[in-house]
Amino acid sequence: MAKYFEKTDKWVVTFKYPLEPLEPPRELRGKPEINPDLCIGCGACAEACPPNAITKEIDYREGYAKIKIFYGRCIYCGRCWEVCPEGAIVLTNIFEMATPSKDDLIYEVNLELHTCSRCGRYTEFTERQVHRAYTLLTGIPRERRKELLDRMFLCRDCRRQVFSHDALRNRRTDKYGRASQTPF
């Protein structure tokens, strides 16, 4: 009988968890976090998120693109991790998120918007997106690259104007000076 009681201490299976810290497994899908140094603000995560826990808002007045995670609605599916082109968003193994206030469940990354080099207004894409697009132009032939670079730093409206201006200037005419039916 004495032996039985000696052994019972080793047979205790109950967690001591809230009183003692717990190391969660490495591959546990917990709180998703954005690495602010890598995020370019493309909003692919917001597109992919099934419950729209991640949203992208563009603030033209202040000039910021807001990538906002609301953990209260997150279902930890990991689709944001899957689609992120920069590997910026990663699911950590943190699960201790219970809180008495809903405001604690917000994680927000504000990225600066690009300003158009022609008209000076804010565009709908961020400075980092333009930078990343520039680095992706490495393997492209020089003539095509110059053509792309001319339009890369413009906003959507200016790009349309520049394009139509170029098209008009380079239009084909017949021998009487009239514009042909197919200008491009």
Partner: peptide, 23 residues
């Protein structure tokens, strides 16, 4: 445990402004 007052909350709102330089 938080309801009973045994542990404290570990999460707080984070609003970041990382600037325009990308890694």
């Amino acid at each position: 445990g938080q309801l009973l007052g045994l542990v404290n909350k570990k999460i707080e709102p984070r609003i970041l402004y990382p600037g325009r330089r990308v890694l």
